[in-house]
């Protein structure tokens, strides 16, 4: 195992369930990008999983089957009450061909920022993150200017599932719970980061969740992130 002992304990506590909301969200975001951490979590889940055998059965209080059946048959796009994950994964499949081209484009965008920003100013504090699940899925390009305390997010072949919105979050242990940076529209969108410590901004994890239209109703992510990334300095 090549991960640090601290990360292995975090993975163990994630599997056991004792992490708090913020730690749990952070690890859920990191595992999407860090295969070794993901593997460590899976190993811990496998070690503990036999305990579930000893949990006595409980009959569910109401008949849930019709609702579940309706959800899995919701393959038609207009079916009501589709789960965000079902929707999203279906969408990802639909975008796959297009997204391979998009990921190339995302790379080009990142390189584009490097070239443009380094020639424009001597020492701008520019950072970029490509939020992406894997090379074949849609992506968001996030750029941060620390001097101006501005963030811009640009969807790259990423379209929210019908009736849902994508919302961007900043996640860092110092912030406690994930903080919303707003709903992501179809066009590049800016957000102010003046409320955040530059060190936190530079080191934080950025994550996108699928939310009801207009964003999370209670200011907290409604589910685990579907896209995550960390900032990379474009120039010193």
């Amino acid at each position: 195992m090549t991960i640090s002992p601290d990360d292995d304990f975090a993975a163990a506590e994630y599997a056991l369930g004792t992490l708090d909301a913020s730690e749990r969200a952070t690890l859920a975001a990191r595992r999407l990008r860090e295969p070794e951490l993901d593997e460590a979590i899976r190993s811990w889940e496998a070690r503990l999983a036999p305990l579930a055998e000893a949990a006595p059965e409980i009959e569910p209080p109401r008949d849930l089957w019709p609702a579940i059946e309706a959800r899995i048959r919701g393959a038609s796009p207009d079916a009501p009450g589709n789960g965000t994950i079902v929707e999203l994964e279906r969408s990802i499949r639909r975008w796959r061909a297009m997204a391979i081209a998009a990921s190339v484009l995302a790379g080009v965008l990142a390189i584009g920022f490097v070239a443009r920003e380094t020639t424009r100013r001597s020492a701008p504090h520019e950072y970029v993150a490509i939020l992406q699940k894997d090379a074949a899925s849609p992506a968001f390009a996030v750029t941060v200017n620390l001097d101006k305390q501005e963030l811009t997010v640009r969807p790259v072949a990423a379209q929210a599932p019908p009736g849902k919105s994508y919302e961007l979050w900043i996640i860092d242990a110092k912030l406690g719970a994930p903080r919303s940076l707003g709903v992501i529209g179809d066009t590049p969108r800016g957000a102010s980061l003046s409320a955040y410590d530059p060190a936190v901004v530079a080191g934080a994890t950025y994550a996108v969740t699928v939310e009801p239209p207009g964003g999370s109703p209670d200011g907290k992510p409604s589910g685990t992130p579907v896209f995550v990334g960390k900032l990379i300095p474009v120039s010193p």
Partner: peptide
């Protein structure tokens, strides 16, 4: 499996 998973 529903009673088992509900138990969890």
């Amino acid at each position: 499996t529903n009673a088992k998973l509900y138990g969890v």
